[in-house]
Every structure is written in C-alpha cells, then in structure tokens.
C-alpha cells in the first residue's frame, strides 16, 4: 500500500504505457486482422465524424439551397450524378476497348459493371498520414465489404476498402499507402509490375526487371486484375521517371504519378463486385 501511495502516478503511467505497448506488440508482424478493440473505437467514433461532416455539409447546403436558386441546384446535382455514372461508363468502355474486346462483349461487361457501383462521399482522411487512408460515408448496409476497388469520379483508381467496415462508414486504403500493392501493366510497352505507395504524393512501380525494355515517362498504367481485388483495366497513374536502381541490380526504379488527386476526391465509386479479370 505505501508503494501505491508514494508512486501512484508513476505506477499508473507504467500501467498505461504497458497497455499501449501490449496493443502495439499484438499487431507485430503487421498485416494481421484489426483487433476487436481497434474496430470498436472506429465504430464508436466514425459516426461522430460522419455527423460532423454531415452537419457541416448540411449547413453549407442549407445556405446554398435556400439562398441560391433551389431548382437549378437540384438539377445541377442530378446532372452531376449522371455525369459521375457516365464518366465511369466511358472510362470502363475505353479501358475494355483497349484490351481489344468486341463491342458486344464491352456492352455486356458494362451492363454487369454498372449495377455494381456504389457512389460514396469522403468524410475523413488518415489522422497520421493523409496519404494512407480515407473514410467513406457508406458501409455494410450499402453493400460495401472488405477488398473492394474504389475509383474517383473520373474512373481513376483510388484504393481498396479495408477493415473496419461499419454499418455506414468504410475505411479505404489509398494506393499511395506504403503497404498498398496493385498489380498493373503499362498501356504501351506492356511492362507488368506492382504499384506500391510511398505514403507521399508518388508511388513506385516495383518488380520490373532491369533487363526489361520499354517504358516511357507519361506511359499509362492499368490494373491487370491478377490480384483479384482490382478489376482489370482501371487507370492507376502514369510513369513519371525510370532510373537504374543502384540498390538493386535486378529491378528498375520506376516512379509513378497516381491519377487521382487528393484535394479533389469528394465523391468516389466503390465497385462492389469485380467485373472479372482478363
């Protein structure tokens, strides 16, 4: 008892520190499922985030709707929604055509693809590094689950859904996250590799052999569908630079600029069912 009274605060600190260290240590090595505790905290606080964003957007739209031209606003929103779907369709069509499929097959794929898009709003970004994750305002009640591809309004790949997925909120791992990996192929020279994030504005195309020829700055990269997460043909980004990797004589060092723009992703499309790889 005297020890507790004398060193109460230090013992409490030691207990709390041990608790946090325990939390950290059960996640090492990384890649394991998120703990129930972490998911519970996300479930508890994500509605707050959703409410805050909703309230701010609500206040903003109240101002706009009541003091602006209401009818025009509604029509505009409808048009935006239509453009959103149209953009997805056009992008998907272009990508499929690029794979030299017949028009009939393209239409068939498109019909199946269209019903599987869930538009969602971005309500938050990663609290430690904004290039890692975002939070969407749609969840399992809207048909969203883990490992679904997420595109921006122009059909550019943004990332994939990851756990935790709550009833009305979902976390998305961005392709710029350093633990993210997307199987891609370059549009012209057919270089295949894996795009990995660097937790910054740019990504890296890995596993392209130093002996592989081709590849030009500006060349577009598309998903291959081999990873069974991202449907084939989605636009990922373009090659920014190609260098010889001094640290590894086997592979080339290729920097990739993702197409999606962080500052402009307000609405995204979650592809709830893969359209099928090639």
């Amino acid at each position: 008892m005297p020890l507790w009274e004398n060193r109460r605060s230090v013992l409490i600190l030691a207990g709390l520190a041990a608790f946090n260290i325990l939390l950290i240590s059960i996640q090492i090595p990384r890649g394991a499922e998120k703990s129930l505790f972490e998911r519970s905290i996300f479930f508890l606080y994500s509605p707050v985030q959703r409410a805050v964003t909703g309230a701010v957007r609500g206040l903003g739209s109240l101002w706009t709707n009541y003091f602006d031209l209401r009818g025009v606003r509604g029509e505009n929103q409808q048009l935006k929604k239509e453009i959103f779907f149209r953009d997805q369709d056009v992008r998907f069509l272009e990508d499929r055509l690029r794979f030299f499929q017949s028009e009939a097959k393209v239409r068939e794929s498109l019909a199946a693809f269209r019903g599987t898009i869930v538009p969602a709003r971005v309500i938050g970004a990663d609290s430690a590094n904004p290039y890692q994750t975002i939070v969407l305002d749609k969840g399992s009640l809207d048909g969203i689950g883990k490992d679904m591809a997420v595109c921006d309004r122009f059909g550019n790949l943004v990332g994939r859904t990851i756990a935790p997925v709550s009833l009305k909120e979902t976390m998305v791992q961005l392709i710029t996250d350093k633990d993210s990996s997307v199987s891609v192929v370059s549009a012209v020279d057919r270089l295949t590799g894996s795009v990995t994030g660097k937790s910054g504005a740019f990504c890296e195309l890995r596993y392209v052999l130093a002996s592989a020829s081709g590849g030009q700055p500006g060349e577009e990269l598309l998903t291959t569908g081999y990873d069974k997460i991202y449907p084939a043909g989605l636009r990922v980004g373009s090659i920014r630079s190609l260098e010889k990797d001094e640290s590894s004589p086997i592979f080339r060092r290729i920097v990739v600029e993702p197409y999606f723009r962080f500052n402009t992703i307000d609405i995204v499309a979650v592809i709830t069912k893969a359209g099928g790889g090639e």
Partner: peptide, 18 residues
Amino acid sequence: VQDSFSLGVFGVGGLTKT
C-alpha cells in the same frame, strides 16, 4: 482515438500521447 482513424500501428499514438 487518433490511431483508430489511421492505418498506422494501433497504440503508437496512444503510447506517445500517454
């Protein structure tokens, strides 16, 4: 709470802020 909104290792923010 901060860690739950991040993809980083859960508990790092908890430890540093403690």
